[in-house]
Simulated assay, not measured.
Amino acid sequence: MEVSEEGLPEWLGPVVRAVRTVAPRQLSSFLPPADGRGRQSAVLILFGEGPRGPELLLMERAGSLRSHAGQPSFPGGALDPEDGDPQGDGPLRAALREAEEETGLDPAGVQIFGVLPKLYIPVSSFVVTPVLGWWRKPSPVDAVDPAETARVFTVPVVDLTDPAHRATAVHPSGHAGPAFLVESALVWGFTAGVIDRLLHFAGWERPWDREKRVPLDWRA
């Protein structure tokens, strides 16, 4: 599968440069186990152009799922054998396939322009390859299977960088991490961590109040 930076909009330049140079430890302290354990998976970080400028595609997982229930996330999931080599372009195929299965996205309209280092989600033992795409030809998206996906939505980057929408999410275990209060959702965990780092290394981050804390049951 082709990874190409050709013909991207100018505003994506800072993201492209960040993807080229960022090191795994700059993204997360959770890196894949050295012994190769973990389930290979991929997510699609899809940038599009909306009415309010650049935006990201996200989805909210169904509340009945066994892992990460009700959590906003990038489209994605585990690699299937037909996706191919996990160390090659298997994650690229998986990211597009899962995005199509979950959101109805037409993969033909997506230009993959970069791949971030593999990261690790300890709670589910997923080794995740973040695949970055430009939504060159947007297609209609919606929750394909309500048993898996509660809803599909886009978030303007201007809202993600707005200090008023930023907070630190506190897990019942005491673990704290970056969060975004956008589109009636609390984006936290792995997804928020990756967005936070992308905004930072692209130079889009604005100063925000890191002492502002929200519990995961913030709607209660």
Rank of each mutant, 00 (worst) to 15 (best):
E2F: 06
V3K: 03
E6M: 15
G7D: 10
E10G: 15
W11F: 15
V15Y: 09
V16G: 11
R20Q: 12
R20L: 13
L27P: 03
S28N: 10
F30S: 15
P32R: 10
P32L: 06
P33H: 06
A34S: 08
D35H: 01
R37F: 06
R37K: 14
G38S: 01
G38L: 03
R39K: 15
L44D: 02
I45F: 15
F47L: 09
F47E: 07
G48D: 08
E49D: 08
E49Q: 09
G50R: 05
R52A: 15
R52D: 11
L57W: 05
L58I: 14
L58A: 11
M59N: 13
M59D: 11
G63A: 11
G63I: 08
G70I: 06
P72F: 13
F74T: 04
G76D: 08
A78F: 04
A78V: 01
D80A: 15
D80W: 13
E82H: 13
E82L: 15
G84S: 00
G84T: 02
Q87M: 13
G88F: 00
P91Y: 00
L92G: 07
A94K: 00
A94H: 01
A95Q: 01
R97Y: 04
E98A: 10
E98M: 12
A99H: 11
A99W: 13
E100Y: 11
E101P: 14
G104Q: 04
L105F: 04
A108V: 13
V110C: 13
I112G: 14
G114P: 03
L116D: 01
P117H: 03
I121R: 01
I121S: 02
S124T: 15
V128Y: 00
P130L: 01
P130F: 00
V131R: 00
L132V: 07
G133W: 00
W134Y: 05
R136V: 10
R136T: 12
K137H: 14
K137Q: 14
P138W: 01
D142E: 15
A143V: 01
D145Y: 13
A147L: 14
V152W: 06
T154W: 08
V155W: 10
D159Q: 10
L160I: 05
L160S: 12
D162P: 04
P163T: 03
A164C: 09
H165F: 12
H165D: 14
T168M: 02
V170C: 02
V170L: 03
V170S: 03
V170H: 06
H171W: 11
H171D: 11
H171Y: 04
H175D: 15
H175M: 11
A176H: 10
A176V: 07
A176I: 08
G177L: 02
A179L: 09
A179I: 02
A179H: 02
E183Q: 04
S184D: 10
S184N: 11
A185S: 08
A185H: 05
V187K: 07
T191E: 04
A192M: 01
V194Y: 00
I195Q: 06
D196R: 05
D196N: 04
R197Q: 05
H200W: 10
G203E: 00
W204A: 06
W204M: 05
E205Y: 14
P207K: 09
P207H: 10
W208Y: 06
D209N: 03
R213L: 07
D217C: 09
W218E: 07
A220R: 13
A220T: 06
